[in-house]
Design a protein around this nucleic acid. Sequence first.
DNA 1: GCCAACGTTGGC
DNA 2: GCCAACGTTGGC
Length: 154
Amino acid sequence: MGYWLFKTEPDAFSIDDLANRPQQTEPWDGVRNYQARNFLRDDIALGDKVFIYHSSCKTVGIAGVAEVVKAGYPDTTQFDPESKYYDPKSSETNPRWFRVDVKFVEKFPSVIPLSTIKSMPTITELGVVKKGSRLSIMPVVENEWQQLCAVAKR
DNA sequence: GCCAACGTTGGC
DNA sequence: GCCAACGTTGGC
């Protein structure tokens, strides 16, 4: 079982958007970063748990949990000239970008603020506490996942 | 809105 | 293959 953190800008897509459609499969598409692509294509598995992280907003931090319901497969927006994620250098026979599907699991009673996460001395691996981390998809180690879940439920 | 950090691009 | 220029991300 793997653990991950996905960033999203809540103005575009928030934990509430997920929560309002609890039965629905949501595509996590438009990721255009090679390191994140490799995670999506190679490492993120069915059943993995995902922290939904709100960035570029009033309260930056972890807002809740989702679950992977479909592992990596080609992100079709890369083939669509109308899409803002269109990539003319990609092809259906050799796709460059991948996505997974997720579904809602839970919304935390309140967002765990980034400042709180940074203040926890035992959270050292998580990418968001590292300076200048711009990755939108990042792994979470299990013990840090458990710690953050405990904080969320306080 | 500022700006540091980082990824990508393209000339050589 | 180097590296400067440029664009983007994202916290503050």
